[in-house]
Amino acid sequence: HNLTITQGKLFFHYNPKLCLSEIHKMEEVSGTKGRQERNDIALKTNGDQASCENELLKFSYIRTSFDKILLRWEPYWPPDFRDLLGFMLFYKEAPYQNVTEFDGQDACGSNSWTVVDIDPPLRSNDPKSQNHPGWLMRGLKPWTQYAIFVKTLVTFSDERRTYGAKSDIIYVQTDATNPSVPLDPISVSNSSSQIILKWKPPSDPNGNITHYLVFWERQAEDSELFELDYCLKGLKLPSRTWSPPFESEDSQKHNQSEYEDSAGECCSCPKTDSQILKELEESSFRKTFEDYLHNVVFVPRKTSSGTGAEDPRPSRKRRSLGDVGNVTVAVPTVAAFPNTSSTSVPTSPEEHRPFEKVVNKESLVISGLRHFTGYRIELQACNQDTPEERCSVAAYVSARTMPEAKADDIVGPVTHEIFENNVVHLMWQEPKEPNGLIVLYEVSYRRYGDEELHLCVSRKHFALERGCRLRGLSPGNYSVRIRATSLAGNGSWTEPTYFYVTDYLDVPSNIA
């Protein structure tokens, strides 16, 4: 807008934040220059609390790290170098490059900038070799853009010569660093050979998330399962459950009422301010606690030095998902009996873990797994792929695949051998790939016309006998059925096997 004052003059007093240069501009645009008398524009009460600059400061050096910015700028000295009290560095987070010096300023003089007072450097006698002032900004957020400017702080001049310097606002972004852990990993099994893994992005990506790394490792069953005799009275049979499938998407929606109208769909109840505040506090606490764990609990591995020492970490090797089922080394339970199943799973520490690289999504279907087997899954978020990966501390989750139908069934015939004193040795093959492992066998036998009897055969007993022995049988026709019990439950009964026990007292003698 054009402003013209045809008559009258300007009068400025007691404006401590208004620089004289701005008042002189007002004289020019209003056409009143030359009308004012000496005392109409006070030299001592206008701009006496402001830094009124008329020179431009330029930054000469900028260096960044993930949490620091090192700045240096060209030296500046007023005509009387004693008038320079120091520099004021202003900075704040700036997602967009549209910041002005006066953003967030209120009537009390406060604003949204963080201000650092910096002492002037030592003055050199040689004007050509003056030290460049600077400042190291610490405690910054990774991968965050900051708006920065600097200006001088000078003393009051009796001659009211307006001098000083100020830089333009520059924008500097800190470097990326390792992201925080992925949030809320959930693993479920939808079949006997697959596990579905879902997660949420890290709360602090500290860069642009480029991919996720998912490692999985087959877990050995508890050692007590191999040692305890679950045929003993009072000892509860062990059981394991597989990871249940995901709930429906509708039930997972946030901010939804727990109660549904019987007449149909209901609208979600909005969260109160107290609920939102509580969630923010919980989120802040979780982030602080995660940072504490990362800094205190997890110790970084030592990389190899120039002395030739090897990095103890196993090298990563990509495998196809079809090879995942046989990740671990199978060892027989008892070496003397080769027909026992290889369900003991000690994992070799030198073995390469299978892994998958996930790009542009937060889910993965891990296939080719062994049925009813526990897996430990390790999830890392990465925001750099080359020249070397920059990934987060791992988040861990466990899951067990679903049982395989008929995996616990005894394959092959049940054979028998009759000894003296009416002892019958029953023999059968253990299931080759049971659900988890076989903890015991149930032997059901009966003599024709009598009630059915049951015998429990422990895992250890089966390994020693290759089956079991029935003792003290009365003469007669017998039928026997056997079924295995694994961590997933009972298998199917075998087809009945028949044998006849004679009275050993009636056996004919070869003595003449």
Rank of each mutant, 00 (worst) to 15 (best):
N295V: 12
S320I: 11
V507T: 13
N339M: 07
Y375K: 01
V443P: 01
F462E: 02
N360A: 11
S398M: 05
L487W: 09
S305K: 13
L277W: 12
L437F: 03
E404K: 11
A484E: 04
S203Y: 05
E465S: 11
H416G: 11
A394Q: 11
K233A: 14
P413T: 10
E258V: 06
V365P: 09
S274I: 02
K302H: 14
C231A: 02
T210K: 15
Q429G: 15
G264V: 12
S274N: 09
P434T: 05
R471D: 06
R390H: 03
A484R: 00
E356L: 09
P205W: 04
L213F: 04
L232K: 05
E247Q: 13
K357T: 08
A309I: 07
R390T: 07
L453I: 01
Y292E: 05
T288A: 04
K287W: 15
P300S: 07
E417F: 07
V501M: 05
I410R: 02
S348E: 11
A263D: 09
N477C: 07
E217T: 12
G412W: 04
G467F: 04
R447H: 05
S262W: 03
Y500S: 10
P245V: 08
Y478I: 01
N206F: 12
T328C: 06
L369K: 01
R353Q: 15
E265F: 10
S320Y: 14
E388P: 09
A263Q: 11
V393G: 03
F226G: 06
Q384E: 12
S444N: 09
L237I: 06
C456P: 04
S458I: 07
F289K: 04
Y478T: 01
P354K: 05
E227V: 10
I482R: 00
G234N: 07
K287H: 12
L277R: 12
E260L: 10
S284A: 13
H211G: 08
F289M: 06
E378V: 11
Q380A: 09
T340D: 13
T373H: 10
P338E: 07
V297S: 08
P238V: 04
N435H: 01
S284R: 07
P431C: 09
P475C: 06
N477V: 02
V329H: 06
S479L: 03
R301W: 10
G368P: 11
L464G: 11
R313T: 11
L455K: 04
K406H: 09
H254P: 07
F298N: 13
K271P: 05
R466V: 04
F372V: 01
N208W: 12
E378M: 05
N383K: 03
S474A: 09
S492A: 13
C391E: 02
K460V: 14
G412D: 12
P238E: 05
A263W: 02
V480Y: 11
L228R: 09
T347C: 10
D273E: 11
V443I: 09
E420F: 12
V299I: 10
G449W: 03
T328F: 13
S509Q: 10
S344D: 03
G467D: 01
R286F: 12
T272Q: 06
E247K: 11
D204R: 00
R301G: 04
V439M: 04
R376M: 02
L455M: 13
P338M: 12
A330K: 15
H461Y: 12
G306R: 14
A336I: 08
Q252F: 14
D311R: 07
L470W: 02
V214W: 00
L505Y: 15
E265R: 14
V358S: 07
F419V: 06
S486P: 00
E389S: 10
C269V: 08
N383R: 04
E247I: 04
T241E: 02
H454G: 15
S486N: 01
N435M: 00
V331S: 13
W242T: 07
V214E: 00
E495F: 15
S398E: 04
G449E: 11
T401H: 00
S367Q: 11
G308T: 09
V397Q: 02
A263P: 10
E249C: 10
T485K: 10
T494E: 00
I366N: 00
H211K: 09
R286V: 11
S203R: 09
E378T: 11
Q275T: 11
S304V: 10
E362W: 14
S268Y: 05
I209L: 11
K432G: 02
E351K: 14
E356H: 11
G308C: 14
G368C: 04
K287P: 11
F337N: 15
G491F: 02
E356G: 13
F289V: 12
I438G: 01
A407V: 07
N421K: 12
P245M: 03
V423L: 03
H461R: 10
D323F: 14
V359A: 09
I482K: 00
E388T: 11
E433L: 02
W242S: 14
P496S: 10
D222P: 06
A463G: 13
S398Y: 14
S367T: 07
G472R: 06
V423A: 13
E290S: 10
S492V: 09
H416Q: 09
P475K: 08
